[in-house]
Design a protein around this nucleic acid. Structure first.
Lengths: 211, 211
DNA sequence: CCCCTAAGTAAGCGACGCTAACATATGTTA
DNA sequence: TAACATATGTTAGCGTCGCTTACTTAGGGG
C-alpha cells in the first residue's frame, strides 16, 4: 500500500482550500479506484487533497457520507451508459435490452470498485435517500424497455417480472466476473456472449441453440 | 457496536488455553455472523476467547488467515446443503437441480455473513488453495447434476455451459436479495419462486407461463 | 472598519493490526 | 527425576485510523 502523494492544491498555499468538498470527492474516487473501497482511508484522501485529517468534517458528517456522494454519482454514470446502449441499439428491441445488460457488465468491469461500492454490503451507504432514488430510476429504465418490447411484439407478459429476471442474471454475471469466481471454474468465459445467449430465453423467446 | 463479553475459557485460569486455535475460529465465526465481516476485529475475537490480542499470532499469520479458515468451512457447509437438496428431490432431475439453486439462496439468507465472506471482494481471501479447491468441488456438483439430467432426458447440450448459466442466475438472486437491492425496486419479491420460474428456461425446457 | 461566521489547523483520545521481548507451561531426553 | 527445548501465552509499544475539541485564520456584510 503506497502512500498518496499530494496533488497541487488548487489554491496554492492559501489557508482556505477553496473547493475542498469537491477536491475530497475527487481524491476519494481516485483512491477507491486505485486501491478498492475496502482499503480507502479518509486520511489518505486528506493527504491527496493537501489538508489535515480534521478538515473533511467541515463538509461531511463522517467517512460514510463521502462514499454516499460517490455512490450516487456512480448510479448516474450507470444510467447514462444504459441510456446510450439502448439508444444505439433501438428502443424496445431485444437488441437494445441485451445491450443494456451488456452495458451493466461492462460498467462493472470498467468501474469495478465503483460497482462494488454501489452494490456492496454496506447497508448504511445504500439507505441514503439520493442513493435509493437513483437506483430505482436505473431499474425503471429496464422495466420501460421491457414493457415497450412486449407491446411492440404483442407479447402478453409482466414487464416488471421479466425485468427482475434480467437484472438478476446480469447482476450475477457481473458479480461473479469481477470477483473472479468464474476463473476458478470456467476460465476464459465470455460473459458478454453468455448474456447474448440467455437474454432471449428470459424474454420468453424461443431460440435455436447456439453453436 | 457492543463489546464482546468473554466466554468461560475451556481451561479456566490456565496460562495455556488448550485449544486456542479452535476457540478463535469459533469466536470469529460468532462475531462475523453477529456483526458482519466488515466490522469484525481480531481484538474482539481475543476478548471473546479470553486471551490477549497478541495470542492469535501463535496460530495464524494474520487476521486474514483466520477468515480463510472460516471461508473454507463455509464451502463445506454449502456443499453439504447442496447434497441434501439434490438427494431429497432426485438426482439428475429438474426438481433436484432447482432445489440446489434454492438451497444456494437459502444458504445466503441463513448465513448471510458467511456467504458475503465466501463470495465477497476480498481477493487474497479467495486465492487460498483450500478455498479454491472447495469452491471448485461445489461447482462440480452442479455440473454433474446437469449432465446427469441431460443424459436422462436425452437432451443434447453442454452441461458446463448450462451450469454456469444456472449459477449466474442463482448467485445474482442471492446477492440482490441479501443486499436488499430487490427491496428498493420489487418489495416482497419471492425469490424461491423466481428461481422456480426461471430454472426450466435455463435448462432449455419450454414451459407454460406461470400465473 | 469591525465583527461574525465559515473553513482550516493542532493536538489528542481510544481502538486497531501487528511486533518484539519476556514468561510459563509441556514433554522429551539423559 | 532434572534439565533443556519448544510451544504457547503475556506485556508493552509502534504506527495508523476515525473522530472530537479547542484554537486560528480568511473573507464578506453591517
Amino acid at each position: 500500500m503506497t502512500k498518496a502523494t499530494p496533488e497541487p492544491a488548487s489554491n496554492k498555499g492559501a489557508y482556505h482550500h477553496g473547493e475542498l468538498r469537491e477536491a475530497l470527492v475527487r481524491a476519494t474516487r481516485q483512491l477507491v479506484v486505485e486501491r478498492g473501497a475496502e482499503n480507502f482511508t479518509l486520511a489518505d484522501a486528506c493527504r491527496l487533497a493537501g489538508v489535515t485529517t480534521a478538515a473533511p468534517y467541515r463538509h461531511f458528517r463522517d467517512k460514510q457520507e463521502i462514499l454516499e456522494e460517490l455512490v450516487a454519482r456512480g448510479f448516474d454514470d450507470m444510467s447514462e451508459r444504459s441510456r446510450v446502449a439502448v439508444e444505439s441499439h433501438g428502443e424496445g428491441t431485444i437488441e437494445g435490452i441485451r445491450a443494456m445488460g451488456q452495458a451493466y457488465v461492462q460498467f462493472a468491469v470498467d468501474e469495478t470498485a465503483m460497482f462494488r461500492l454501489m452494490f456492496g454490503q454496506n447497508p448504511a451507504l445504500k439507505k441514503a435517500a439520493d442513493v435509493v432514488a437513483r437506483g430505482q430510476s436505473c431499474f425503471a429504465n429496464v422495466i420501460n424497455q421491457v414493457a415497450l418490447y412486449c407491446q411492440r411484439e404483442g407479447i402478453q407478459a409482466n414487464a416488471p417480472e421479466i425485468a427482475v429476471e434480467l437484472w438478476t442474471f446480469v447482476h450475477g454475471a457481473a458479480s461473479l466476473l469481477i470477483d473472479e469466481d468464474y476463473e476458478k471454474v470456467a476460465p476464459g468465459l465470455d460473459v458478454q456472449r453468455l448474456i447474448e445467449n440467455v437474454t432471449p430465453r428470459l424474454l420468453r423467446v424461443a431460440t435455436t441453440r447456439d453453436p
